[in-house]
Design a binder for these strands. Structure first.
Lengths: 199, 199, 199, 199
DNA sequence: AAATAAGCGAGACGGTACGTCTTGTCTTCTT
DNA sequence: AAGAAGACAAGACGTACCGTCTCGCTTATTT
């Protein structure tokens, strides 16, 4: 219970309060899941976090900006693809985890809310794409990239289109149609891929 | 200075004003394209339409409700699949039109905005799914349905999964990744489908 | 308990809500006396009056503007000089009432607060002078004016300076020095006046 | 680049920085004249003085406290009555100087602002009366006191009431009515006094 | 010389109130 | 009866200051 070197205090000249930062991100996360995006407000986040509004505005520009940070803290760890050596196995595992993430998890709810907000606000869309979607896209295509590098897939493969065909239907169900994204479905996507590329 | 027979007046005892209805839908449509969803307000719609706020609230529950009506007026006509007899040709044509609709058209912008709002508000999501997404889903699977009925595709085909694989990547690019949805891409989706089933 | 023609309701196209107007003025008056000027806030007035902040801002520009209205409702009735025919008697009576008003009454507290605020804000000072001080000044010199008109005082009397000598010391004690303003004091001011002008 | 002997540096263990003290008082004075009391803030004073807010709060309790100090530095020197031996002459001279002080000078502006604030805040009123008004009151009655002591005025004179009649109208014009306080006016006040006592 | 300790500039913090904006309801008058 | 007008209660917005706090620096004295 010692105060280590990373311990930040309220207000000092060397930067922001880590305590406040974490409280805000957690409050935003919780409120989104509890109330839904529309009813999350800066005032609500401040009250829940026990923080002054000005402290939020000092470090974030809007509630979407808070939520991006909240999302980024969770997304990396949950979604890094494994690498067993067998492409089919890895793809099946990754799509299952992606499905759970998008459809069931709290960070997934944040992701969908931000994705929605990006439709409403072009300026935010740019921010969201570069900070959230680009890394996510990178994870989504990572297994195919590795397979090309290791020679298990031909080097002239159109990675963009192939990735879209692999994960697009999954996002579609999770975000647009609201259909179920169970193992049957994700496995079928992998089967279709293998049919195209000879697995 | 006479009023023609079809002329509807402000306030009358014979039902709602068609004039006001149309003015509201057009104002909503225009404002969405001009300002983006976030900056469309009921007050703005009323002002643009030259209509009292109460008139809007009398007939619609919220701005999303107005936009659904505005969308439904435009969507049907644009997206009914043609039927040339050749499945591959029809699929290619439909996906191209769907891509243009989602990515470029004004009704497509309304659609994306409403889809986004459905992420933020579960109650609206139900409304939107039944009134907009279900018909859209019906159009998206119509060609495959016909082909099954006419025997060109096997009757045990999983229509849901196949439709998702066909249009999912397209929605994904249009709504999520923001990538281009040109002919190359839509044709590639049809090729993949034919590889699975076209023989 | 009927709703007469003057009865005003919440929001209609023909003007403001009398109910809200009165509630705001009373709330402002009460809060000033209870808390003192510095702790009267627009939010506090709104909450006490059961009124939305916007309703206050629609009709008043600031809390001082509300207080001016609150003051004007009370001041007229309390301070109209009587006219017994005897100048000395009338002057003594008026100064006593003025002393009580400035030093003891609730409207007097409002007056002192507004006078103070006028020192702090030149723009408000102009407003306050024309709407409150000018009528007050008129009341303060009314007895002398009448006496000049009726010939009891010479027509070349410098009314401004005489009025200042009569009431100035009283305002000075009430507002500046905080000294007592009892009958001894007000009567002494009248004696001095009579000494100057021959009783 | 040497530091002179009187030079105070940031931080030392034996007392406050004279440099900071002076900078704060000057900043407060300047800002009051430039912006008016309402727009003078602790943050503004700190910024103008090139001083940390905490430094101000360490030595003063509020902006009014700063202004009292700023006022006291200027007031004494300007307003000590002269003593020519002739009461009427001295009174005329003093009232003219008092009028200029209250109505035209920068310290007079500070005085009026503090007087105003004393109306708003009873606790500050006590502070202000004892530290500013009492000495001022002493100066205002000094000439009459001396005249009593030296036998030029009767020893049973009610000094309080006489002083009020002498300077009250002047304060009244300067602070309340905003009327002009020229020589005509101040001389008239002295004439009235002489009429009462001058013989 | 090193250690100590106070005042300092800096600025983040939890708060409160500001004045504005939009929402959805309501009432009145007009057509 | 429907519409136009617009006042209303509610409550979130983003900003400005408040007064408190911690920090690391500078400096004068003490050891």
């Amino acid at each position: 219970m010692t105060s280590g070197p990373g311990r930040r205090h309220h207000g000092n000249r060397h930067g922001r309060s880590e305590e406040a930062r974490v409280a805000v991100l957690e409050a935003a996360d919780d409120l989104l899941v509890e109330l839904g995006f529309a009813r999350v407000t800066m005032e609500g986040i401040a009250a829940r976090a026990g923080v002054a509004k000005q402290t939020i505005y000092r470090w974030w520009s809007a509630k979407t900006d808070v939520l991006i940070d909240a999302f980024l803290q969770d997304a990396d760890e949950d979604l890094t693809p494994s690498d067993s050596g067998d492409l089919a196995t890895d793809l099946r595992a990754y799509l299952r985890r992606l499905a759970l993430f998008l459809g069931e998890s709290d960070p997934g709810a944040v992701f969908r809310a931000l994705l929605a907000q990006a439709q409403h606000d072009p300026a935010f869309a740019r921010e969201f794409r570069s900070r959230c979607l680009a890394p996510q896209r990178h994870r989504d295509r990572l297994l195919l990239e590795r397979a090309v590098t290791s020679g298990r897939l031909p080097s002239d493969l159109d990675l963009e289109t192939e990735t879209d065909q692999l994960v697009g239907p999954l996002y579609y169900r999770a975000v647009v149609s609201g259909g179920p994204v169970g193992e049957d479905f994700t496995d079928a996507l992998v089967e279709a891929f293998l049919l195209r590329h000879g697995g």
